[in-house]
Simulated scan of single mutants.
Amino acid sequence: MFTAQDILDIAIRLESNGEKTYRDARGHTENEDLKSLLEWIAREERHHGRWFAELRDRLSKGEDDHLLAEMSKALAEDVVREQAFSLQEVDFEAIANPDEMIRTFIGFEEDTIAFYNILRTFVDDPTIAANLDQIVAEEKKHIAQFKALLSSP
């Protein structure tokens, strides 16, 4: 069975990978608007990762031990197996243009939101739920900003 610690480790890894990927991507585009957006989102992902790490640390001290307690191994394995959840590396050499890069990142953000929405169904602490909802809202904002760059000349 996956523990809450395991699930939070996945969330931390998602955010860490996102931060690294967005920082790396800056060197693979000449589009200054995209570079600026990637840097801003990388900082947001770092902030999200820190929040999940703090929550994991609280759990390791026995606080909020009810969090995710009922999440079964089968469900968690199915969720993780079916989604990439931004854990794979991006081959920037295979990306032909900024629009393709942006679409790739939109997919990553959508995967992350899907994972957090599943995670959210197992959270009964109102403070944790509100923080997780805020992170989901920020991830949705990332998508909107990426999409705005797709539609710009």
Rank of each mutant, 00 (worst) to 15 (best):
E93G: 02
D78Y: 04
L68Q: 06
K73M: 07
W51Y: 15
L132G: 02
E32S: 13
T21L: 11
F85H: 11
Y116G: 09
W40P: 00
H48C: 02
A114K: 13
E138V: 03
R23C: 08
Q145E: 07
I12R: 12
I143G: 01
G27K: 09
E45L: 13
H142M: 03
N17K: 15
M101E: 04
E39F: 09
A130T: 08
K73N: 03
N31R: 15
E100W: 03
K20S: 12
I12L: 09
D99G: 06
L59F: 03
E63M: 05
A129C: 04
L37W: 12
R23L: 15
E70D: 12
T3K: 04
M71L: 12
I135L: 06
S60T: 09
I113Q: 09
P126F: 05
I113N: 08
G62K: 13
T112R: 04
A69K: 11
I95G: 04
K20I: 11
L68K: 05
E15R: 04
M1N: 01
A129P: 00
T21D: 13
D57T: 09
L38N: 10
D65R: 15
A53T: 13
P98I: 11
T104D: 07
F85A: 07
E54C: 07
A114C: 06
L67A: 07
Q134E: 14
M1K: 02
I41G: 08
G107I: 01
N117V: 00
M1Y: 00
L14I: 15
R103N: 14
E93S: 05
E89Q: 07
V90T: 11
E19V: 01
R120Q: 13
K147R: 08
N17Y: 06
T21A: 11
H48Q: 02
T112A: 11
I106T: 04
A4Q: 04
W51T: 14
I7K: 00
T21H: 12
I106E: 04
R103E: 13
E82R: 15
F115P: 03
K141F: 03
F2E: 02
H48E: 03
R46Q: 08
K140G: 12
W40A: 15
I7R: 03
W51K: 14
E54A: 14
V90Y: 06
E44H: 13
H66S: 12
G49Y: 02
T127Q: 09
F92W: 06
Y22L: 10
R50P: 00
E100M: 13
P126A: 07
A114Y: 09
V79D: 00
R46S: 06
K140I: 08
S152L: 05
I135R: 00
R50D: 15
G107N: 07
A25V: 05
V79S: 01
